[in-house]
Design a protein around this nucleic acid. Structure first.
Lengths: 134, 134
DNA sequence: GAGTTATTTTAGAATTATTCTCAGTTGATA
DNA sequence: TATCAACTGAGAATAATTCTAAAATAACTC
């Protein structure tokens, strides 16, 4: 919870429930996933609160917004630099921790400042591969 | 136009106008951009036609759907393998043609089949960099 | 611990991108 | 040039997200 104090946001019970749901969560949930989970504890929870909290966290680096799903935004509580593998069969998302050193092609090197990059791998995950081999 | 015949879709005047707008277009337009542009020639053009055509093209590899913009889908008529640079100041998107050989970290290598990857670079583009140096 | 205040919560409305519907039209093929 | 599956288009439907404004409250001060 120390971590949350550092966020410098008002710690309401609703926000703590959202933070606790996100903490260590590797499923890359959507706003709706979060809403549904937290609504169990706080039946009056509204989407506005979910989105407000996510916005506040985003601005403070407490969560990353992923544009991986073309239907809805997904959120990743791990804001340390990493990439993603997306299974094209089951749509699951796996974190990839590896520091790829990527530089722009020579003709763009001058003039462009690169501050970061994000890689998405596509393919078949372990589970789906096993499943199809049966 | 030879290229379009190969797509095996019915070539209606509306579709030809969309194809002609997309052909060589490096702006990564949204459905609305396409709609507005083509509506000039075909005032009765509807969004349904734009989306139908994009769907048909997508399925045949004639266009790529980009999840680069968190507000709306963007479309890229260049479906050859390439990556993108997104300027965090002016939001412009620049194509990056370079074949980065990326492999998963060792612990994921077995079990995962990678069929492709997509890289987004973030930073300041040439124009914005120049602008801020004035 | 009580008072103050700026921030947050919430229900519901509003907005926006995308998809759907279905009647009327048309490109492609024979 | 007739046929028909595929396409167009106006508008309605859907779904994710944002906005609104009144009531509630966390955090700060004394």
């Amino acid at each position: 919870m120390q971590r949350y104090r550092q966020l410098q946001i008002k710690l309401t019970p609703q926000r703590l429930a959202i933070l606790s749901y996100l903490n260590g969560n590797k499923t890359h949930p959507s706003a709706e996933d979060i809403y549904k989970a937290v609504k169990k504890q706080f039946p009056t929870m509204s989407f506005a609160t979910v989105y407000n909290t996510l916005e506040a966290l985003k601005n403070r680096g407490g969560v990353m917004e992923l544009k991986i799903d073309d239907k809805r935004k997904r959120y990743d509580p791990d804001s340390t630099k990493h990439h993603h593998f997306i299974c094209t069969k089951c749509r699951s998302i796996v974190d990839i921790f590896k520091d790829y050193k990527l530089s722009l092609p020579d003709e763009l090197k001058k003039g462009f400042d690169v501050t970061g990059n994000s890689i998405e791998f596509y393919g078949t995950c372990r589970k789906c591969k096993k499943g199809s081999e049966q």
